[in-house]
């Protein structure tokens, strides 16, 4: 057990260090911060933003009172979720593809470490990097929450960001599996992006299919589960769904790396 943990930590630290020393990761982060900052301003303060809408509603005196901070959070994190769909495949694309291309997979495969431990360490590494990417967002939101009157519940913020991390972990885990299938990083990113779109639109497919099949497909939707979490609704079924995607990704990755040994190289 101790060995397993120290193996995972070794991989984790190496992964994290490689993201923090990669110019490419900085570019992605920069773009992500820029776009998320723009959306933040537009959704909160823009002419069609949440504040303007609530003000208009107040003026005409219609409808129930609106919880501005939580309305804002739902819209904003919804957008960030879509943005993450573009960003995450770029973070996960190199996880194994790079190792395969550089031949370092041979080092990992001949070290006393299981494929599982490598996959878990890698996933934790890239997830930590994504988390650091979202820290500034958390700060903007905290400021918005604190300046609301009456102050909004900070727990909502934590649950919503927990949801974002779970979504990211699920996407990255599947992205890691795709990355283990090829030694081309570009191909890996494109395939992951395609796969994510498919999962994203399972909602649409589900609504098009009648009966229990449609319902079953609907339950696979990452979007629905993510939507619940950013509203502050914590349901076991959503957590199980995310956990299933994460474990599935790790499992498939470990299997696909194991299978590589049986192929002619």
């Amino acid at each position: 057990m101790g060995v397993l943990v120290s193996n995972i930590i070794a991989i984790y630290r190496k992964e994290l260090q490689s993201y923090f020393s990669s110019p490419f990761a900085y570019v992605i982060t920069g773009v992500f911060w820029f776009i998320s900052g723009l959306f933040f301003a537009a959704i909160l303060l823009g002419p069609t933003g949440v504040i303007a809408q609530v003000a208009a509603q107040d003026q005409f005196g219609g409808g129930a009172p609106v919880d501005v901070p939580s309305q804002f959070l739902i819209v904003y994190l919804g957008v960030i979720g879509s943005l993450a769909l573009f960003i995450l495949p770029m973070l996960s694309m190199g996880l194994y593809a790079e190792e395969r291309k550089r031949g370092t997979l041979e080092l990992l495969a001949t070290s006393p470490i299981t494929n599982w431990a490598v996959a878990v360490g890698k996933l934790l590494g890239v997830l930590t990097f994504f988390f650091t990417m979202t820290v500034p967002l958390l700060i903007y939101e905290a400021i918005a929450f604190l300046s609301a009157d009456p102050p909004a519940n900070p727990l909502l913020l934590l649950v919503a960001h927990g949801g974002l991390l779970l979504l990211a972990a699920a996407v990255l885990s599947l992205g890691m599996f795709v990355s283990s299938l090829t030694d081309s990083t570009i191909l890996s990113a494109v395939l992951t992006f395609g796969l994510m779109l498919m999962l994203w639109v399972t909602d649409l497919i589900a609504s098009g299919v009648q009966g229990p099949v449609g319902e079953a497909i609907g339950h696979l939707s990452l979007l629905t589960s993510y939507g619940n979490l950013i509203q502050g609704i914590v349901e076991t079924s959503d957590l199980v769904l995310f956990a299933s995607y994460i474990v599935l990704g790790i499992f498939l990755t470990a299997q696909s790396i194991e299978l590589l040994r049986y192929q002619r190289s």
């Binding site: 120290s6 193996n7 930590i9 070794a10 991989i11 630290r13 190496k14 260090q17 490689s18 020393s21 990669s22 550089r102 031949g103 370092t104 997979l105 041979e106 080092l107 990992l108 001949t110 070290s111 006393p112 470490i113």
Partner: peptide
């Protein structure tokens, strides 16, 4: 695996690591 040191035909190196950091990583791995 714990008792073997292996140098494949292409040395398995991470280009973005320093020599020392890389060797620490391998030491931890082994």
């Amino acid at each position: 695996r714990q008792r073997i040191g292996y140098l494949p035909e292409t040395p398995p190196l991470y280009p973005d690591m320093t020599v020392e950091a890389f060797l620490y990583f391998v030491a931890r791995l082994k």
